[in-house]
Nucleic acid binder design. Structure first.
Lengths: 153, 153
DNA sequence: GTACTTGCAAATAATTTGCAAATAT
DNA sequence: ATATTTGCAAATTATTTGCAAGTAC
């Protein structure tokens, strides 16, 4: 779905859930759906201000919480303990994040169920939730990496 | 290996790596190996002071970094973005954490390799690192949970 | 003795909260 | 009209850093 439509769709969803659709919220939403990468609240602020200059960082935080609640955004955990946010796609739960450009892609849970059962049997723990993130290089950065290597040689 | 021996073994390792073995470091190490749960720096401080009262929070942070570098401790990421630390066992990389009592167990990477290959094929990303944590109920808390349920009924 | 460590107080960084003014419905 | 939302400044929390005094080797 094109970004403009996503903004409308999610905007309608917010309203359906009883939230008001303000210019700032629309701006944050737009930044998010237009971005292929996961962004920190500060980065989102910077971009949102290009659409709605009188946006504050606090509002970004609050909006991201609303968007996460409604399912439009997903919180991504970074190794340093900070958080980034990525646009959500349907029903998928895990992320692979490019270590170079932070591009984020969601992928399906795959066969983690088998792993859970094994762990459950071996440890006695009842697995209730999980958290999986992959880090690597996106196709573009892989290419760039190779090109860089050639240049530097 | 019993906790006292682990303290000695890891202590020797620190020295072998050129670190000095101070009372505070010993205290932090002891707290860690004696604990089945993952602990926050603040919690570790509290317990370490029972052994060495003149321990400061900053030293705990610095010691945890040293211990993590040497492989004696592992950083565990909590959903809220804070960090906890758990004693490390050999060669294992993933954790299952009890949501009730924070008991932590490590388990082997299992067959994530297959998952990575699938993701790599489907997304074009080159998987370089990953991050997996499971959350659930440890055997003790499962029992307690059931008992509580009966009591409350 | 000397280089590594410590504790404190102060600095940073990320995030949250209180509140009066602004605004979507 | 009114309840929600906003921006600011201040508070909070987690973590880091500078530095003089203390200590393991």
């Amino acid at each position: 779905m094109p970004a403009a439509d996503l903004v409308k769709t999610w905007g309608a969803r917010l309203q359906a859930e009883g939230y008001r659709l303000t210019a700032q919220r629309r701006a944050v939403l737009q930044v998010l759906v237009e971005s292929a990468a996961s962004l920190s609240p500060a980065e989102i602020l910077q971009r949102a201000r290009q659409h709605v200059p009188e946006t504050g960082l606090v509002t970004v935080y609050r909006t991201l919480e609303v968007l996460t609640t409604c399912g439009a955004a997903r919180k991504v955990h970074r190794p340093d303990g900070c958080h980034s946010y990525a646009p959500a796609s349907e029903g998928h739960m895990h992320h692979i994040i490019c270590e170079r450009c932070r591009a984020v892609l969601e992928f399906e849970g795959c066969d983690l169920g088998t792993l859970f059962k094994t762990v459950q049997r071996r440890t006695g723990y009842k697995v209730q939730a999980h958290w999986l993130e992959l880090f690597g290089l996106c196709p573009a950065c892989r290419q760039k990496g190779m090109r860089d290597k050639q240049i530097h040689k």
